[in-house]
Simulated assay, not measured.
Amino acid sequence: MIPTRNAEDSPLFITALARGVSVLRAFSEGQPAMTLPELAEATGLSKSSVQRFAHTLWTLGYLRKDPGSKKFSLAPWSLELGMKYVQTSPLVLGGNPFLHMLNRNSQETCSLAEPDGLDMVYVARFATHKEMFVNMPVGMRLPLYCTAAGRAVLARLDASVARGLLERCDRKAYTVGTITDMDALLAELEFARRNGYARSNGEFYPGDITVSAAVLDAGGTPVGAVNVSVPSSRWSFEQAQAVFGPQVMETAHAISASRTLGRTRPFYEMEPPGGALRGAALEAEGL
């Protein structure tokens, strides 16, 4: 059974702060700019609450406000929140030199991803100079179940824990190649355990082939995964595995052995991000 906890039930939880953060999190590629009523709908907060939070965030420099449309959008200063993470993360700092070496040797796009809830978050990336159509910026979140990085991490967990995480995933098909069947997914995890690397073939982005191996902390807990991504226009699925499987395993092992990673709490024991923020916001508004 996967442990869960309700962080918002703690007396240490500050609901007002959570509501403010929910305003920052409301913006997305589909909604890059919003009026106060739109922000209220997106967050579940009242218009008066959103007005106070938006004004405060604008004053602090995290939001912009268009004087004509009255729409708010994220300001460049909001990047500081994410940049502080990549500048202080032991996984990123310890992994970057090895990831850069992998990028130079493979001449392909190489990434480092970290598990968070039911997603993999891309925390470092070195792009190829060759043709590559997939945009995978740092901070991008992709599901555990349909990514090579996610499967690499799941394969290093206890089988019952890995299955429980897969069952919690909303296993929808992003492409015609997305594997959603539980037995087929468990077979992919077994492949990763047997071969030392995981794979995916156009399961989130059509034509994107990815090979990945897990990074382990000092206690053997998976804390991330090294990826090499290539387009199917230049590589076959079999060729990519044969060439990059050994390379990602070697790089992941080097990061794991670099002594930059201490023992960490397993990611699956932590509260999935976002749920507490919106739940607390709605509760505070009496919804």
Results as ranks from 00 to 15, higher is better:
residue 229 S to W: 05
residue 263 R to G: 04
residue 140 M to V: 13
residue 283 E to L: 14
residue 223 V to L: 14
residue 14 I to D: 13
residue 1 M to E: 14
residue 190 E to F: 01
residue 162 A to I: 01
residue 259 R to E: 09
residue 29 E to A: 15
residue 81 L to D: 05
residue 142 L to T: 01
residue 287 L to N: 09
residue 100 H to C: 03
residue 214 A to Y: 04
residue 188 E to G: 08
residue 246 P to S: 01
residue 135 N to Y: 12
residue 236 S to F: 02
residue 33 A to R: 09
residue 82 G to W: 11
residue 211 V to A: 07
residue 197 Y to A: 09
residue 225 A to I: 13
residue 199 R to F: 12
residue 68 G to T: 15
residue 203 E to A: 13
residue 93 L to H: 13
residue 188 E to P: 03
residue 71 K to G: 04
residue 28 S to A: 14
residue 38 E to K: 02
residue 102 L to F: 08
residue 127 A to Q: 13
residue 175 T to A: 00
residue 226 V to M: 07
residue 166 L to K: 11
residue 221 T to C: 05
residue 185 L to C: 05
residue 237 F to S: 00
residue 53 F to A: 06
residue 112 L to I: 04
residue 175 T to G: 03
residue 196 G to V: 02
residue 154 L to A: 06
residue 231 P to T: 14
residue 251 T to Q: 02
residue 204 F to L: 11
residue 229 S to P: 12
residue 123 V to F: 09
residue 214 A to M: 06
residue 43 T to V: 00
residue 270 M to K: 04
residue 87 Q to R: 14
residue 80 E to G: 03
residue 92 V to W: 01
residue 86 V to L: 01
residue 92 V to F: 10
residue 247 Q to R: 12
residue 151 R to K: 15
residue 233 S to F: 12
residue 252 A to L: 00
residue 203 E to I: 07
residue 104 R to W: 03
residue 211 V to H: 10
residue 229 S to L: 12
residue 51 Q to G: 09
residue 255 I to E: 02
residue 99 L to T: 10
residue 280 A to E: 05
residue 234 R to G: 01
residue 199 R to E: 11
residue 146 C to M: 12
residue 259 R to P: 05
residue 281 A to S: 14
residue 146 C to W: 14
residue 173 A to D: 03
residue 111 S to M: 15
residue 171 R to T: 08
residue 72 F to I: 11
residue 169 C to G: 06
residue 154 L to S: 10
residue 23 V to M: 00
residue 226 V to N: 11
residue 276 A to G: 07
residue 254 A to H: 07
residue 271 E to S: 12
residue 55 H to C: 03
residue 106 S to T: 15
residue 216 L to R: 02
residue 240 A to N: 12
residue 98 F to C: 02
residue 104 R to P: 11
residue 16 A to W: 06
residue 184 A to N: 11
residue 182 M to T: 00
residue 192 A to H: 04
residue 180 T to K: 08
residue 71 K to T: 00
residue 212 S to F: 00
residue 108 E to N: 11
residue 252 A to S: 08
residue 260 T to K: 10
residue 227 N to A: 08
residue 223 V to C: 14
residue 69 S to M: 07
residue 148 A to E: 13
residue 121 V to I: 14
residue 277 L to V: 08
residue 217 D to C: 00
residue 52 R to T: 12
residue 265 R to W: 11
residue 183 D to E: 15
residue 123 V to H: 09
residue 57 L to F: 13
residue 168 R to I: 08
residue 31 Q to D: 14
residue 59 T to N: 15
residue 57 L to A: 01
residue 8 E to K: 03
residue 31 Q to V: 07
residue 237 F to H: 11
residue 84 K to H: 07
residue 194 R to H: 06
residue 202 G to A: 08
residue 3 P to N: 07
residue 248 V to T: 06
